[in-house]
């Protein structure tokens, strides 16, 4: 039952990707897309989603839609931040590698958090080990583990938790 759910989740995602890529609604394309999605999912579902169809529940997708604008706003801020540091004649940087601690348990949650941290102001994930993430920070504001977790990961962690766990 578990692997059937995983298989279906993979097939649904592949079919959705096919629809976006062809961007038509012709019957022939849709049928061919469904057939190929089912075939390709057969090849790849074992390595794909550990949680199956539960990843596609409406509540999670709604959270993802709420999360996207927050993420884009942070990404925009990150770019203006980098632009400021690069263009400023004296380059106000204070780099360092800090450790932060996360409550997330699943691998996909940690991946999501690490990606979000990499694309947001002044931080870059260097290593994920267990419940610690090591972050290269371009302007270190707090060296302490707890404070750094709050400043770097705090703004994302509850959203990521709602989406992935």
């Amino acid at each position: 039952m578990k692997s059937l759910s995983r298989y279906l989740a993979t097939a649904v995602l592949l079919f959705f990707l096919w629809l976006l890529l062809t961007s038509t609604t012709g019957t022939q394309e849709v049928v061919a897309g469904a057939v190929f999605a089912l075939l390709v999912a057969l090849l790849g579902y074992k390595g794909f989603s550990a949680r199956g169809l539960r990843m596609l529940s409406p509540r999670r997708l709604a959270h993802l839609l709420i999360y996207l604008p927050i993420f884009f706003w942070q990404m925009l801020k990150a770019n203006f931040d980098v632009a400021y540091r690069v263009v400023h004649p004296r380059m106000p940087i204070r780099p360092g590698i800090v450790a932060i601690k996360t409550d997330l348990k699943t691998d996909i949650g940690k991946l999501f958090l690490a990606n979000s941290i990499t694309l947001t102001p002044g931080t870059l994930t260097v290593e994920v080990r267990g419940e610690y993430l090591f972050i290269h920070w371009i302007n270190v504001k707090a060296e302490d583990v707890e404070q750094a977790s709050e400043l770097v990961g705090g703004r994302f962690e509850k959203h990521v938790k709602a989406i992935c766990e």
Binding site: A78, N79, V82, M91, I93, T118
Partner: peptide, 26 residues
């Protein structure tokens, strides 16, 4: 362009990666 400038100006590989990643992504 700013990402490219950052790769030229910043001092070490990690800072350059920061500029490179964020600016090229957006």
């Amino acid at each position: 362009f700013l990402g490219g400038l950052g790769i030229l100006r910043l001092p070490d590989v990690y800072n350059r990666l920061q500029a490179g990643t964020k600016c090229t992504t957006l």
